[in-house]
Computed example of a mutant assay.
Amino acid sequence: MSTLTLKDREVGIFFWAEPDALATLRTVKSCGVVSGQLAIDGTVQLTPETTAAWKAAIAAEDFHVFTVFAAYEGESYADIPTVVRTVGFMPADTRAARELRTREVIDFAAALGVKSFGCHVGFIPHDPTHPEYIAVRDLVRRIADYAATFGMTYCLETGQEPADQLLAFFGDVDRSNVKINFDPANMILYGSGEPVAAFELLASQVISVHGKDGDWPDPAQPGSLGTERILGEGSVNIPKFMAALREKGYNGPVCVESGVHGEEQRWQTLSNAVKLLNSLR
């Protein structure tokens, strides 16, 4: 495990960049946190003005950003075939543009003083000799090397591969700054493995965790994704999962992702989830 500061041991929130940086952070803090992970969707223009606004807001609110995540234009999580076709670095026709965008997001994170970048890579072929596997592996190496110039880790999000396959990919990438942001619900939503067992296998590489819950895909609907749930109401078994973190000596951040969408419910749901995780930590 990485050596972490006391501030890294907090419960935080995963949240999306909105146009008003200061207002966004104040809303996030209203849920009872002073830290989190900042997500940048593909439409956000990362101008010098954007960077300056976020840097000033973070300083003004004394807020700690653990990780900056990138999402990309054209991605869709409608179902597994759509994820395969659109998400991360697997679509060959957007790969070059997304590599450039990734570097922009890393530059943005570095300007904010954030030491971790993350994203979904997409469904990597199981065959390490497959041309698409090789192309994505080499791209991940390039991104890791670029992040390393800023002293930054590159976190891969879990869920789209079983834990043993992700671990094998790690070995093949062979970059010491490539780590894992472990999302227990994603393991369930994609039907890729029981989350506690997956965490135990990957624990040595995990530097951040999502607090998220969900139920398994419907076996009567092949290709479907599972359903996100309010934290504590899905199939992850959050108390068991949090106990597994303690047993493995994990002291890093746990950042809530809401399983409820819609502005009216979202922030109350996040606030309740923060209270639940604090009670379990």
Rank of each mutant, 00 (worst) to 15 (best):
Met1Tyr: 03
Ser2Gly: 06
Leu4Ala: 10
Thr5Ser: 15
Leu6Phe: 10
Gly12Met: 06
Ile13Asp: 13
Phe15Met: 09
Trp16Cys: 11
Ala17Cys: 15
Pro19Phe: 00
Leu22Ala: 09
Lys29Pro: 09
Cys31Met: 08
Ser35Lys: 00
Gly36His: 02
Gln37His: 08
Asp41His: 07
Gly42Met: 13
Thr43Ala: 15
Leu46Lys: 03
Leu46Thr: 09
Leu46Ile: 13
Pro48Leu: 12
Glu49Ala: 15
Ala53Pro: 07
Ala53Asn: 13
Ala59Asn: 14
Ala60Pro: 11
Ala60Cys: 09
Phe63Val: 00
Val65Phe: 01
Val65Asp: 07
Thr67Gln: 00
Val68Met: 07
Ala70Cys: 03
Glu73Arg: 13
Gly74Trp: 01
Glu75Ala: 05
Ala78Trp: 01
Asp79Glu: 10
Val83His: 03
Phe89Asp: 09
Pro91Gly: 08
Pro91Ile: 12
Asp93Ile: 01
Asp93Glu: 14
Leu100Lys: 12
Arg101Glu: 12
Ile106Asn: 00
Asp107Ile: 02
Lys115Asn: 09
His120Phe: 11
Val121Cys: 11
Pro125Asn: 10
Pro128Ile: 08
His130Pro: 05
Ile134Arg: 11
Arg137Lys: 08
Arg137Trp: 01
Asp138Leu: 08
Leu139Lys: 03
Leu156Tyr: 04
Gly159Tyr: 04
Gln160Val: 01
Leu167Ile: 12
Phe169Met: 10
Phe170Gly: 10
Val173Glu: 09
Asp174Pro: 02
Ser176Phe: 04
Asn177Cys: 14
Ile180Thr: 06
Asp183Gln: 08
Asp183Pro: 05
Pro184Tyr: 13
Met187Leu: 11
Ser192Leu: 02
Ser192Ile: 04
Ala197Ser: 15
Leu202Gly: 15
Val206Asp: 01
Ile207Val: 15
Ile207Met: 06
His210Trp: 01
Asp218Thr: 05
Pro219Phe: 03
Pro222Met: 10
Ser224His: 10
Gly226Thr: 03
Arg229His: 12
Ile230Gly: 15
Gly232Tyr: 06
Pro239Glu: 13
Pro239Gly: 10
Ala244Val: 03
Glu247Phe: 01
Gly249Asn: 09
Pro253Cys: 12
Ser258Ile: 08
Gly259Gln: 00
Val260Pro: 05
Gly262His: 05
Gln265Met: 05
Gln268Phe: 04
Leu276Glu: 04
